[in-house]
Every structure is written in structure tokens, then in C-alpha cells.
Amino acid sequence: MTITGKLVLRTKCVVLGNSGAGKSAIVQMFHSDGAQYPKTYAMTIHCDVCVKVVNIPDTNVSVELFIHDLAGYDAFQEYWPRYLDGATSFLLVYDVTNVESFKATSKWLHLVQKARGAKDKDAIGPGVLVATKIDQTLRRAITTKQGEELAKALGLMYFECSAAGNTDVDAPFYYVSSAFYDLYEENLKNVRRIAGVPDEQPATSLALDKLKPRQQSGDSL
């Protein structure tokens, strides 16, 4: 039995929202650790994929985010369900200077719900609502309060950020990673219950468990 103890979780994380909302800017800033802000708009074609590893603090767990930066332009509509297929986390993005993008969020969430097959609400995993371009204070049309209310209505966590200002871009990705790990732990508990194993770790992992700081689900990060 090896006690290397490194656990790598993987999630297909879809970033969706209206065209021009600022999805690619967020993804590229996060992926490049703040080095790459796309100043000129280059419309995403179909879907761009990149991978980023997030280490969960105080654990031996890392989450590989397979980020799918979806094209929001309507011409790609017929492909959206395909790119959402198998997603287990998502960021739903709107632009605080653009009312249309704010209003469209329920349409996008509906797509996510359809992809998850409605049967199992946990099947798609954690999701967040992201308000971006908050550097545009003068042109801002949607307030923080409106954003928070929408998030509450949609049942999502609320985040706001600015890719241009490199402000809080990482937070929604960290949250999703941590929530995905919580989901894994929860799933593990459930599987143990089904298998009739006491909630203690099975014998094979006792040693590993001792090395690991006690992690209660729900309070990581």
C-alpha cells in the first residue's frame, strides 16, 4: 500500500453567458495568473479549452479544472448542449454594463439544467454567478444588490470581478474547485453508507487519514 496520498480530482467547468460578456477575458486572466488580458475582442469560436490546477489549501487534494470557454454568439447555439454535456461545474457570467447579458442569465441556467438531465440536480455539480467589468464604474447598469438578488433567486453563489483591473478573477474558480472537492467528500460518505462501511475511513486509508488534517466539508478555503 502506498501512502503518497495525492488526490487529483477533475471537473469539466463550463464558462457561459452572452457574447461579449467577458468570459474569455476572465478565463485567460485566471489561466495566465494575471499575465494575459485580451485588450481587443476576439470572438470565441465554438469553445476554447484549457486546464488549470487548483490546490485545495491544507489538504493533499488538487482539482484539475478542464475549463470550457463557450462561444456566447448566437450562431453557435446548436452546439451549446454538446459542449455542456458531461460538465460538472460552471461559471455563469454577465457584464455589469450590459442589461441584456444580465437578463440572459436565466436562459443560460436553463441550458445547464437541461444538460444535467433534470433527474439528478447534483449531476452537474457546483456553479456560480459572476458579474464582471466592475472597473466600468460610470457605465455600470447592474448594481451589486441586483446581482446578489439574482444569484439568490437562481440558487447560485455570487461573485464580482474585473478582468481588465485584475480584480478577484480567481475567486469564482477557487470556490468552484473547493465546492467540487466537497461534493467528492459528500459522495464518498454516501457510497460508504450504501456499502455499509462505518463513516470511518476504510482500513486501507487509515495511515493516509492520519497524515491529512481533518477536513470537514463546507469550510475549505
Partner: peptide
């Protein structure tokens, strides 16, 4: 997942298991 090794699937026991860590 080193806590749930693959041999758990062929030890003849349904209490022990192997679990995937995400993606299909």
C-alpha cells in the same frame, strides 16, 4: 485515489471500492 485502490474491485467484497475522481 490512493485511499480507494483498484484492487478493491476484485477482492470479492462489496464494502471496499474504487471511485472515479471526475470526468467521463
Amino acid at each position: 485515489d490512493t485511499s480507494h485502490p483498484v484492487d478493491n474491485m476484485i477482492d470479492g467484497n462489496t464494502k471496499s471500492f474504487w471511485m472515479t475522481t471526475g470526468l467521463f
